[in-house]
Design a protein around this nucleic acid. Structure first.
Length: 576
RNA sequence: CGGGGCGUAGCGCAGUCUGGUUAGCGCGUUCGGUUCGGGACCGAAAGGUCGGAGGUUCAAAUCCUCUCGCCCCGACCA
C-alpha cells in the first residue's frame, strides 16, 4: 500500500474529547471517525487490524471445533418473547417497527437466534456437543458510551454458543473456551490480563468469568488475592470481614441525641464503626420497601442487592417511605417492626457480630448489644452477602488482604445451563430416547474493544505499538526525498521485492519531510520500519528500526529483503 | 436517568459576559518557490446556513425561549 493513496489523515492536535490513550491515538492516527454517540466508522488501517484480530479468534474457535455462522441483526419481537427477554430487557435494546407494523429489534446478543437455529438442526445426542459462533454487529443502546471504542453502542462481537448433553460436559467445554481465550489474547499481544469471577447479569446462568486487561483506566474494579489467586469483579467480589465475636449482652436503649450517621453514633458511644449495624432503605419496583441491615463500616453493593431482590429496578427510599413502615430515619433498625411492611435483607456480617449498636426507631435513641440471631428471631428475612469489599479486606478463601485494581473487560464466558434451551425447547433425544433440553454455554469477545485495549497496553508518547500478529502492515518504508530519482528508483525496486517476498508493506511515498513521515509512522504503529534516503543510499544501506525500540541499525541494500523476511518470521513466532 | 460542560472552516481554538461594517487565528488542504533525517519557511488561494427553529432589536455568533447533538462525572451496562 502506498501512503499517498491511503485514506485517513493523521491529526497533529490531540482531540479535545479523548481522554483514554487508545481513543486519542485511534483518532489521531486516523483509525476511527465518530458518526454519533458510541457509533464509529473504521478506516482502512483499523479495518486491517480488526480483520487480523478476527482471524486469530476464528482460528482459535475453529481449533475447539467451533462452526462459524451468521445470525440476523434484526429480529422479530416474537422470538425474544419466547425466553422472556423482550420484556425483561429495558431501553438498552433498540426496538422499532417494520412497514407492516411488526415489532422488531436490533440484536444486542444472540441467544434467542442461536437457539432458534439449534432447535431445528439439533435433535440427537449424537450431534452433541457442538459450538456455533459468529463475528457480527451488535447494537446496545447504552445510556452512556465512552472512551472511543471502549464502550460503544454499535460494535463487532464474536459470540459463541455451545450445546451439550449434560452440565458436566458443558463445564468441561467451558474450560476449553477459557484456554482458547487465553491463547487469543496472548496472540493479540496482550500480556497483563487475568480472568475474574463475574456477575452473569442479564445473561443468566450460574458461573461466569470475565477476562480483564489490567489498566488504571479500566472501567471495572476487580479484587485480586495475591496469595491464593482469588479474583473477582467488584460486582460480586466477597471478603471475609473480621467480625466482633463476644458473649451476647442484654439489649439496652441508650440516648444518642442528634447522632444520626454511623460516624456520629460510633464516635458518641466510643465504639468502632464495625460494632454498629446500619439500616439502608430502598424502594424496589416503585412499591416494595427494602430494609437492608449491614454492618456500619461496610457499603451496600447495589449489584448484589439487585440479585437478592431479583430486579434492577430500585432506588434509595425517601424518609416518608421509611417512616410509613414505622422506622425512624437515622435511628432505624428492624427491631419492633413488622416485616409485613418491608422486605428485610440482612448481610451476614451483622449476624456474625455480637453486641452491635443499632437504631431504636425512636428519635435520638439507639440500642446497644444488638445480636441478630437472638433479636431478629421469628422475623422473616433474606440473609445474603450484599457488602462491597474494600482494598485490604481479607480474602474470602485464604484471608490474605485483597488488592483492588482496574480493568477493561475484553471477553467473557458464561455457563448458561438451560436458561434459553428450556423455555425455547431446544431439546435433543438422549440415548434412551428421552427428550432433554440442551445445556448451553456462551462466550463473547468485543473485537473493537480488544483493538483499543491493545493500544492501552502497548503505546508510547508517539502512538500505538502494534504487535506483529495484528499490525495493519508488517513493515513501513519511509522514503526521504522520494522525489529524488535515486531514492525513488531504489525505493520502488525494494518495495516490489518486499511485496514479492510476501511482506505486507506500507510505503510512505509522499514528498514529506522526514519528521512528518516519522511521526505519521509512529502513529500507525507498524512494528518494523526502514528508511531510504540519499544519505543511506550513498552507503548502499537502509536504516532499520523496530517500533518498540529506540535503536537504529543499518542493513546493506542487497540484504534488506532477506533480513526483514527473517526478522518478521522470528517475530511472528512470538504470537503463534 | 441525575449533575456539569461544549456546539464558530477538515482538526484545534479566539470572539459571546458588555449586540455594531466584508466573523478571526493556528494546523491541515490547493498552487508557486526556497528547504529537506523527528511535525521547515515565504507568497498566493480555496474553505463558514457561527448546531437548528422562533423571538427581541435599526442591527444578533453575541440577548431571550424552545429544540437537537456531542463530551465529562455518576447511576446503568450479556
Amino acid at each position: 500500500m502506498r501512503l499517498s493513496q491511503l485514506i485517513g489523515k493523521t491529526l497533529r492536535d490531540d482531540p479535545k474529547n479523548a481522554k483514554l490513550v487508545s481513543h486519542k491515538f485511534l483518532l489521531r492516527g486516523a483509525y476511527i471517525r465518530q458518526v454519533g454517540a458510541g457509533i464509529y466508522s473504521l478506516l482502512p488501517i483499523a479495518k486491517k487490524i480488526v480483520s487480523k484480530i478476527e482471524n486469530i479468534i476464528r482460528e482459535e474457535m475453529n481449533r475447539i471445533d467451533g462452526q462459524e455462522v451468521m445470525l440476523p441483526v434484526v429480529m422479530p419481537r416474537e422470538l425474544w418473547e419466547e425466553a422472556g427477554r423482550y420484556d425483561s430487557i429495558g431501553d438498552e435494546m433498540l426496538r422499532f417497527k417494520d412497514r407492516n407494523n411488526n415489532d422488531m429489534l436490533l440484536g444486542m446478543t444472540h441467544e434467542e437466534a442461536i437457539v432458534h437455529l439449534a432447535r431445528t438442526e439439533i435433535n440427537s445426542y449424537k450431534q452433541l456437543p457442538v459450538m456455533l459462533y459468529q463475528i457480527q454487529t451488535k447494537f446496545r443502546d447504552e445510556t452512556r458510551s465512552r472512551g472511543g471504542l471502549i464502550r460503544v453502542r454499535e460494535f463487532t462481537m464474536k459470540d459463541a454458543y455451545s450445546f451439550h448433553t449434560s452440565f458436566e460436559d458443558m463445564v468441561d467445554y467451558y474450560h476449553k473456551v477459557h484456554e482458547a481465550y487465553d491463547r487469543i489474547f496472548k496472540r493479540t499481544g496482550l500480556v497483563d490480563f487475568i480472568d475474574v469471577k463475574s456477575d452473569a447479569g442479564m445473561m443468566g446462568g450460574n458461573t461466569s468469568h470475565e477476562f480483564m486487561l489490567l489498566t488504571p483506566d479500566g472501567e471495572d474494579t476487580i479484587f485480586v488475592c495475591p496469595q491464593c489467586k482469588y479474583r473477582a469483579n467488584k460486582e460480586i467480589a466477597q471478603a471475609d470481614y473480621p467480625g466482633v465475636e463476644e458473649d451476647p449482652l442484654p439489649l439496652k436503649k441508650v440516648a444518642t441525641p442528634g447522632k444520626k450517621t454511623i460516624e456520629e453514633v460510633a464516635a458518641f458511644l466510643k465504639v468502632e464503626k464495625q460494632q454498629t449495624a446500619k439500616a439502608v432503605f430502598y424502594v424496589a419496583r416503585e412499591k416494595q420497601l427494602v430494609f437492608v441491615l449491614i454492618r456500619g463500616d461496610l457499603e451496600v453493593n447495589e449489584n448484589k442487592l439487585g440479585k437478592a431482590l431479583q430486579t434492577n429496578d430500585f432506588r434509595p427510599a425517601h424518609d416518608v417511605e421509611i417512616e410509613k413502615a414505622g422506622a425512624v430515619a437515622g435511628y432505624a433498625s428492624p427491631l419492633n417492626l413488622s416485616t409485613d411492611d418491608f422486605t428485610l435483607v440482612v448481610d451476614p456480617t451483622v449476624e456474625q457480630s455480637n453486641n452491635l449498636v443499632t437504631g431504636a426507631n425512636e428519635t435520638d435513641t439507639h440500642y446497644i448489644n444488638f445480636n441478630a440471631d437472638r433479636d431478629l428471631k421469628g422475623m422473616e428475612y433474606i440473609q445474603t452477602d450484599i457488602a462491597t469489599p474494600r482494598e485490604g479486606d481479607p480474602c474470602p478463601q485464604c484471608k490474605k488482604p485483597l488488592k483492588s485494581s482496574r480493568g477493561i473487560e475484553i471477553g467473557n464466558i458464561f455457563q448458561l445451563g438451560t436458561k434459553y434451551s428450556q423455555p425455547m425447547q431446544a431439546d435433543f433425544l438422549d440415548e434412551h430416547g428421552k427428550r432433554k433440553p440442551a445445556v448451553m454455554g456462551c462466550y463473547g469477545i468485543g473485537v473493537g474493544r480488544l483493538m483499543a485495549s491493545v493500544i492501552e497496553e502497548k503505546n508510547d508518547e508517539y502512538g500505538p505499538i502494534w504487535p506483529l500478529s495484528i499490525a495493519p502492515w508488517q513493515l513501513q518504508i519511509c522514503a526521504i526525498n522520494y522525489r529524488k530519482q535515486e531514492v525513488k528508483d531504489a525505493t520502488e525496486k525494494l518495495y516490489i521485492e518486499l511485496k514479492e517476498e510476501g511482506i505486507d508493506v506500507l510505503l510512505d511515498d509522499r514528498d514529506e519531510k522526514a519528521g512528518v513521515q516519522f511521526n505519521d509512522a509512529d502513529l500507525r504503529g507498524i512494528p518494523f520500519r526502514i528508511v531510504l534516503s540519499p544519505r543511506n543510499l550513498k552507503k548502499n544501506q537502509v536504516e532499520f528500526k523496530r517500533r518498540d525500540s529506540k535503536d537504529k541499525t543499518f542493513i546493506p541494500l542487497n540484504k534488506v529483503v532477506a533480513t526483514l523476511s527473517h526478522e518478521i518470521k522470528q517475530e511472528l513466532k512470538k504470537y503463534s
